[in-house]
Every structure is written in C-alpha cells, then in structure tokens.
C-alpha cells in the first residue's frame, strides 16, 4: 500500500486508476492469448469441477478456475478447496478432513 492508497481510503476516494488498468489488462490479455472466450472457460470450469468432484468433495462455492498470465505464458489456475475424499483410504491424495486449497496450474502455449 502506498501513501496515496491510504489517503484515498481515509477520504473514501476512488483509488488511482493505474492499478485498475493493470489488473484489467492482465485479465483481458490472458483471455486474448489463450483464445478462450468466457463462455468456453465457464464450460471448462464446470467440467473440471465435475471430474474432480468424482474423486473428492470440493467446495463448489469457493472453487475457482481462471487464467493468469506472466511473461507471455498463460496458465490455467485452479484453486479447489477439498472438503474430504469421496472414498477414504482410496486414491493417492484422498486424505479425509479439511484440506487446504491446492492450486493446480498448467501452462497453455501462448
């Protein structure tokens, strides 16, 4: 946080726009570079959640699949908080109980 951000917050002013510009650009470029439109991404998100939820019980509300981009490489980042495994004792990482969200990321060629 910068002094400017703090003053903006205290005065309840809109924050400086450069930060917003950067965030919006990063998001839109992640989509541009991967050629995935929001509809396809949403479909993919649903299917990924569906497959994962066959093995573990995940928090559908908290689950997040999105695109991130750095250095012209776009990555698909999934953050799926696992509640518990479907069948305890079966499957590699299927520990029961509260697990921390495990980010899984796989780079897409851009």
């Amino acid at each position: 946080m910068t002094l400017r951000d703090l003053i903006d917050k205290l005065l309840r002013r809109q924050p400086a726009s450069a930060g917003t510009a950067k965030q919006r650009l990063q998001l839109v470029l992640a989509h541009d570079r991967s050629d995935l439109n929001p509809e396809l991404l949403e479909q993919m998100r649903r299917e990924i959640l569906e497959v994962v939820s066959r093995y573990v019980e995940i928090d559908m509300e908290e689950g997040d699949v999105s695109l991130a981009t750095e250095d012209r490489v776009t990555a698909l980042v999934a953050n799926l908080p696992i509640r518990r495994a479907r069948t305890p004792g079966e499957g590699g990482s299927g520990r029961s109980g509260e697990n921390r969200p495990q980010p899984v990321s796989s780079p897409i060629r851009s």
């Binding site: 450069a18 510009a21 012209r72």
Partner: peptide
C-alpha cells in the same frame, strides 16, 4: 506520478 497512468514497468512487464 499520481498513478493515473500505467507505469513504464507495468507496460514492459505485461508485454514482456
């Protein structure tokens, strides 16, 4: 300076 324009580093980072 008043952060109302993308910084030079922002643009070079984004476009690499």
């Amino acid at each position: 300076a008043s952060q109302e324009m993308l910084a030079v580093d922002d643009v070079t980072d984004i476009l690499a």
